[in-house]
Simulated scan of single mutants.
Amino acid sequence: MSFYTSLSGLKAAQTDLGAISNNLANVGSTGFKRSRAQFGDLFASSPTQSTKMTAGQGVRLNGVVQQFTQGTLEASDKTLDLGIAGEGFFVVRGAPPRAEVTYTRNGAFGVDANRNVVDTIGSKLQVLPVDANGNATSTALSDAQDLVLPANSPTDPTATLANVSIGIDGLVTATYADGSTQMLGKVAMASFTAVEGLRPVGDAHWQSTGESGAALINTATNGPLGSIRSGALERANVDVTEELVALISAQRNFQANAKAIETAKNMTQAVININ
């Protein structure tokens, strides 16, 4: 029994080492959120058995839970580099035919050949329509649209795009060479009832699940969504010192369980050698 108990400890320590290693590997990944392995003890006994005479049966993995704490915002020189100071997520839509909606904290956006504002994996940033005062006219995901940067002013085709600005509330404004401006929409933001239930799909992107609940869509500066910082990117929320300490602890845990297995083996061998 002690062999299998220690074996479960070895597997748990190995999982812990894997989570820590993944955190350290992604220190430089924009918008990355660290993970932590959570464990629980295994215990079983029959109804007629005294629990005072029974030891536990080892440990099991309860889950690898992501920690959605705020990462440090690092300044950049690009207007389309967006950082979130708050709990919100950018809403992006993949290429057709699937046009899959995902949520990300990676605000390293650029412009593709069709003048769509896209993230690092080519998904298009979604914006909500606005009225003449810059207020969102809808917060429904179905009304969100791709953010496309126009090449010329809609009122004067000879006036080219001169500048794009994004406010802390996510309002995207285009300025043209003739001095005219055009509001292109407000960046759509999402929040979730149980953010730990989101399903990671890689590249700092997540999908909603039954555990996370449906996305609550709104614009920045509303509730817990936070504000948008143009010209900034969110670094990974990984503390290297903390992870290295946890790495040492997991390593010693692995060694201790390995030693327990070796001891159990020696005891069994001693019994076998009794004449």
Rank of each mutant, 00 (worst) to 15 (best):
L198T: 03
E243K: 11
A250V: 04
S212L: 04
S212F: 03
A194L: 00
A258D: 06
I248W: 02
N218S: 13
L244N: 13
V240H: 11
Q255N: 05
R229P: 01
A214S: 12
A204R: 10
A190Y: 04
T193E: 14
N253I: 02
L244H: 13
V240W: 10
L233G: 07
E242P: 05
G185Y: 01
A194H: 12
L225P: 09
Q251F: 03
G231E: 02
R199E: 03
E196D: 06
L233K: 08
S249G: 13
G213D: 12
N222I: 09
Q255V: 06
G185K: 01
S191K: 13
L216E: 15
S227N: 14
G231C: 01
K186N: 03
M189H: 05
T263S: 02
V201F: 09
V195P: 14
N222A: 14
R199V: 02
P200T: 05
R229Q: 14
T241H: 07
M183P: 01
A194N: 15
A220N: 06
G202L: 09
W206G: 05
S227R: 14
N237L: 12
L233P: 10
A220C: 05
K186G: 06
R235I: 09
P224M: 07
L244W: 11
S191R: 14
V201K: 10
V245I: 04
R199Q: 02
R235Y: 14
K259T: 05
G202R: 09
L216P: 03
L247D: 15
M183T: 09
F192W: 10
Q251R: 06
G223Y: 13
D239G: 12
A258I: 00
V195R: 15
L225G: 10
P224V: 14
A215G: 04
L184V: 08
T181H: 14
T263E: 01
N257M: 03
S180E: 10
R229K: 13
E243Q: 15
V245Y: 09
Q182R: 13
D239F: 11
N222Q: 15
I228T: 08
Q251T: 15
R229M: 12
A232E: 02
R252F: 01
I261P: 04
L233Y: 09
G231W: 00
P224K: 08
V238W: 14
F254T: 07
W206M: 11
V201C: 11
P200V: 05
A232K: 02
L233I: 05
V240Y: 10
E196H: 08
L247A: 09
L184Q: 08
A256N: 09
L216A: 15
A214N: 12
D178E: 09
A264E: 04
I261S: 08
N218D: 15
G210C: 02
R252E: 05
A236K: 11
L225T: 11
E196M: 03
V195G: 10
T221W: 09
A204I: 03
D203I: 01
N257W: 05
E234D: 07
